[in-house]
């Protein structure tokens, strides 16, 4: 049996989660931030905010995108933006600094300047405590590989809006060739995503990537799995 103090706290968390999700659902950033501020003021720990409110909120959203078609790009965009901002603020106040889950370099494929999808993915990765280095847009294969080596990243993440920037020789295929030539394939994995892949779920194998994801949050999961696989 829970003591008299426990129930109200748990109820409060429940209420916070509900109000936070509602604000995200309405794409209302100021309201979502206010819910979090009030929670912290009322004694919810930064760890609880991240692990019990923000991450489950993102995950719930993805379940409903894939199953019920009730969420949309705007909500996804706001959820990622808010989640990254809240996580950054909270992590700074964690009792014990969290261990990073690993590092990812991310960019738009060569010839591609559409950065929205990448920005959403970055938000989700940061909320999952993954270190992300943003290489920007229109990134050449050599620059992806150089950066991954210098930054000791376990994953190169490449976003392409269009078919030709996904399939072209200077896209993921070019990165694969370099990794192969430098014997880095065991250490560095390639993850791809972006609008083009969502119309052909097999495209990631055609461009020789290790994995793909249809949205930002599943991107987080897929990348986390790859990073953990690499660990001894």
């Amino acid at each position: 049996m829970g003591g008299p103090l426990v129930i109200p706290v748990r109820d409060m968390l429940h209420e916070i989660i509900r109000r936070y999700n509602e604000a995200v659902y309405d794409t209302d950033r100021p309201r979502a931030m206010k819910v979090i501020d009030e929670a912290v003021a009322a004694g919810v720990t930064p760890e609880e905010v991240v692990f019990s409110v923000v991450i489950p909120g993102l995950e719930g959203m993805i379940d409903s995108i894939s199953k019920k078609f009730t969420h949309n790009l705007a909500q996804h965009f706001m959820a990622a933006q808010i989640a990254a901002a809240v996580t950054d603020a909270m992590v700074a106040r964690f009792a014990v600094p969290p261990a990073s889950e690993g590092r990812v370099v991310i960019g738009n494929a060569h010839g591609d300047i559409h950065s929205l999808g990448k920005r959403i993915v970055i938000g989700c990765l940061r909320a999952l405590m993954i270190d992300v280095v943003d290489l920007g847009v229109n990134v050449a294969p050599e620059d992806f590989v150089d950066a991954a080596v210098k930054q000791e990243a376990g994953v190169i993440a490449i976003s392409s809006l269009m078919v030709h920037t996904a399939r072209g020789p200077k896209g993921p295929v070019g990165v694969r060739q370099l990794l192969r030539a430098m014997d880095l394939e065991g250490r560095i994995k390639i993850v791809v995503g972006g609008a083009a892949y969502r119309f052909n779920e097999n495209l990631y194998t055609i461009v020789e990537a290790d994995a793909w994801a249809p949205d930002g949050i599943s991107a987080g999961r897929v990348i986390l799995d790859l990073l953990r696989e690499r660990k001894p």
Partner: peptide, 10 residues
């Protein structure tokens, strides 16, 4: 931005 094998982009 023109490409040899895809559509031009702003």
């Amino acid at each position: 931005l023109f490409s040899e094998y895809g559509p031009p982009n702003v």
